[in-house]
Design a protein around this nucleic acid. Sequence first.
RNA 1: GCCCGCGUGGCGGAAUUGGUAGACGCAAGGGACUUAAAAUCCCUCGCCCUUACGGGAGUGCCGGUUCGACUCCGGCCGCGGGCACCA
Length: 890
Amino acid sequence: MSLKFDHKAAEARWQAAWDKAQLFAADDASPAPKRYVLEMFPYPSGRIHMGHVRNYTMGDVIARTRRAQGFEVLHPMGWDAFGMPAENAAMERGVHPGEWTRANIAAMRGQLQRLGFALDWSRELATCEPDYYGHEQALFLDLMAAGLVFRKESAVNWDPVDMTVLANEQVIDGRGWRSGAVVERRRLSQWFLKITDFADDLRAGLDALPDWPEKVRLMQENWIGKSQGLRFRFILSPPLFREGSGEGASVSERWDRAVPPERPSPNPSLKREGSDGFDVFTTRPDTLFGASFAAIAAEHPIATALAETNPALAAFIAECRAGGTSAAEVETQEKRGYDTGLSVVHPLDPSIHLPVFVANFVLMDYGTGAIFGCPAHDQRDLDFARKYALPVPRVVAPDGEADAPIDAEAYVGPGRLVNSRFLDGMSVDDAKAAVIARAEAEGWGTGTTVWRLRDWGVSRQRYWGTPIPVIHCAACGAVPVPKGQLPVVLPEDVTFDRPGNPLDNHPTWKHVACPACGGAAVRETDTLDTFVNSSWYFIRFASAPLDQPFDKAVAEQWLPVGQYIGGVEHAILHLLYARFWTRALQRIGRLDVAEPFAGLFTQGMVTHETYRAVTLRTDEAGHPLMLGDEPVVEHHWVEPSAIERRDDGIFEVGSGLPIEIGRTEKMSKSKKNTVAPEPILERYGADAVRWFMLSDSPPERDLAWSEASIEGAWRFVQRVWRLATEPGDAEGEADPALLRTLHKAIAGITADIDKLQFNKAVARLYELVNAIERADASPSRVTAIVTLVQLVAPMVPHLAEEAWATLGQTGFVASAPWPVADPQWLVDDTVTYAIQINGKLKDTFETAKGMARVDVEAAVLARDKVIRALDGKTPKKVIVVPDRLVNLVA
RNA sequence: GCCCGCGUGGCGGAAUUGGUAGACGCAAGGGACUUAAAAUCCCUCGCCCUUACGGGAGUGCCGGUUCGACUCCGGCCGCGGGCACCA
């Protein structure tokens, strides 16, 4: 009989049955050992894409397998529901962000449910609802009380037309992506979280995460960026005269004079600054005698002070600020400086005076915003010194090259100190230590660690986010909203018809009484970065009481997440912020968990070929345009569904234009190489799609979507179904060979799933199916088919349930205990020896396991092929690897 | 520029971590069944030489270690990713 597997009926039937039985609801009170399986929750963009399908399928295999293995599994789903696309939709279509988001969630929930994931939908959450973000506000206030929140001025990208702050990726070629207006740098007072407090902790903690990809740990480590060195103070030289200050002034003949020349009294604005000098940081204190200048950032307070009375300097600073910060601009940007006319005293020799520049390559927000320049051993300093004709004294050299001149490249390699007085002859490391020791002994500097990591700015001048629960009062300052007044709810009646932040524009929302003094005050109208939302959602999944963000004891039962799965694009920010937030909660005693994600897996993208139709550009009359002798060619991207393959090539449907096949790339709208999941699900069913997602490519690598492969997946589903409907007679003898294959498959597949090597598990399942198909009817064959159904259940659950029932098994296969391999079937009693001569395979032979060495040798030497290959020679040496191979060295 | 990863048939990829390279899938070719098609089943399928039997080289390139190297070491080439004026 063997009808086709009816995926539509089976999916509907089993999804309803699972739901009715509440099969996948996690029980906090269960005595079983707990496992938390989590995939990064989606942004509700409107529809799921293949990347989601791949991500959630992998997680589902883990969750279902763990459940079958007897664990109480928490596998929840929710929505990362705040963010800009909702506001864009509001502006473009006049729909309210909340309405848009909630409609998207409803649509995507339905799509996910069609895939039959073993999710606990009772724990579903959306970050845009007050019952989520209200608790987030409470946590924010807790962190604030603990001193982990502060406010400071910070520069933002400001779009003067849309009157809004832009993220860096919204600035394209210096212009706002929407308005096209030239973006300004504005300084706004913003809220920050003190992630730098945890820099060392977050870095050191990476070592305790063996189940994270090495790559991600490295990326985080680099991002945190620990640098050890010396921080010391440069004291401004006593009044001395240096003519010719200004940009490009050549001062080389002056800076190294033993006797400082005279100069006018110090700048009055500097005096007001109360500054006798400034701090610098260096990782190369060993090269201090190679110093030839000092430089401060354009935003450095000294530069700002000097600029008040120096219009030329003010202009220079303005130019520095206008310079873009994009990678390409930075790379091509020339090193430029402005000589302030000031000098500083060399800390190791007061007779040496170094000129002070304002330089465009010194960053205010790293280290102290000021450096000493050592051109011989730092490329940037060298570029700068060459431009301004500063000396380039070498102080480190490999043995015997003390006099080798520095040309266009700074020397950053190892060597010994030269031209450095008491440091001469020391290694770089010894000299670093010696200078730090001396600085500390003499009190002008200290050994310090500096981090690349910056504090986390969480203010966003946007509507669709968590309102920051603070009230600004003229008398009391920034006052936290009392916990009893939470949540601070976003007003629904907002408009997007004018530029700016709708919260700010709202007629009444922000006007409130100060909680401290009762006077007139205004609410903070900034909202929190959406990364805050995703920094604790996994805790709320584990425990979601009404009256508090989570219950400590309940959350700790589930946490940390055993297996977290998502894209590499979140390797740094999201994962670092979540790690920080968890540690911050630990510090304030709310949760005793340091690392939120014990195991992390970053899956590859789903890709597809790209197709381009080629046309000739024509003028108004329809004649092809020519560029010289060549016609001008135009391309446009064509979606996969709009091409047809014919014997004479590939063409665009409708236009008939020839198609060029381009690179296989990440599915994207711009390249039109996306394949929507819904029609595929309709046609091939959820199980075939899930199976495809697990086949072929290793999960960390990209997976190329192809019509042929999904057909192959569909065929596999049918093959398993045929076995289930025609298992054959269970009478007669057992089939030891099949049982051996079966138990090896059980062991292998279980191990593969443990290691998330789904492609290998898939290959083994194919082998098992092949073996069962070839086997004659026997009790063993029926056993093998029943076990096969269990083994494929995490991957193709609807088919498995249907097959399970058809085979007369009771209950859900989803709840059946995971098969365990019987060790007696895992050992072979025969082995195949490979016979090599000089390492090259010549022959093989089969024999009983554990054959004595001498017997093996004798058997090998007696074989025809060996005799022929040796051609009468006696092997010089015979290497026998027991039960594996023999190598004859001739 | 710095850091990291990867190069295996027409394609996606296996290879017990130093021991028979190419499992498994896709594609392709041939055949069976069928009035026909679909579905299904059987066979072939990395390269070169050979009608065959066989033989040879082979895991990006060059060299090394080893009885034996896709695997380890050194040096190149190519592709991909992350960071980027971080002192």
